[in-house]
């Protein structure tokens, strides 16, 4: 293949730097899955419509299907495989497990990555479309069910686990505060 269609890049994923050669058309999602074998990140639509491919890029949520791998150089990527602390599950993972915040499990990695970031976004005072008072000096709002539903709406779940996911995110948020 002519050299112009491929690029040598380095990707920092889950704290490790990987040097790889990718087709310039390769999305970050496909690079994670096909080049690095990190298949926990799922492809549900490849169009940024379902959220199954959500990862954290520098701590913020990103749909990895809408980003080219060559453009992800320099970002610190966290995938579902990097959410737990070794064998110790993250409080969000623990809550999904115990409260049955999933069924088929296919949207779950994206939901969990999203939830981890939602809790941080909320703690940092970011408003959502469900926040009544969005002035910079407004009092912080609790991460209640309406806030969680709004903030998690980019992650579709066709099995219909939303009710349990909302509970799981709320519980993990409470626990994160206690341990923080």
């Amino acid at each position: 293949m002519p050299p112009t269609t491929r690029s040598d890049i380095s990707l920092r994923v889950n704290g490790e730097t990987h040097v790889l050669t990718v087709d310039n058309r390769t999305t970050l999602l496909d690079a994670l899955r096909e080049n690095l074998g990190l298949t926990g990140t799922k492809k549900g639509c490849d169009h940024g419509q379902c959220g199954a491919c959500t990862v954290l890029a520098d701590g913020r949520r990103a749909v990895s299907c809408l980003q080219l791998a060559v453009a992800a150089e320099g970002s610190d990527i966290t995938t579902i495989e990097g959410i737990a602390d070794g064998e110790d599950l993250h409080p969000v993972q623990e809550a999904f497990l115990e409260l049955d915040g999933y069924q088929c499990g296919y949207c779950t990695p994206g939901q969990i990555c999203s939830a981890v970031a939602v809790i941080k976004e909320h703690a940092a005072g970011w408003p959502s479309a469900a926040t009544a008072d969005v002035r910079p000096d407004a009092e912080p709002v609790p991460l209640d069910a309406a806030e969680i539903r709004e903030r998690m709406s980019g992650n579709l779940c066709r099995c219909g686990a939303y009710t349990a996911i909302v509970r799981a995110v709320a519980r993990a948020s409470d626990e994160t505060k206690v341990t923080a």
């Binding site: 899955r33 959410i83 499990g105 296919y106």
Partner: peptide, 21 residues
């Protein structure tokens, strides 16, 4: 009882058809 495969599902270890190399 929580799902037997629950841990694999919340850690991304559960392999679906397109995940198997």
């Amino acid at each position: 009882h929580v799902r037997l495969e629950g841990r694999e599902k919340v850690t991304g270890a559960a392999r679906y058809a397109a995940d198997v190399p």
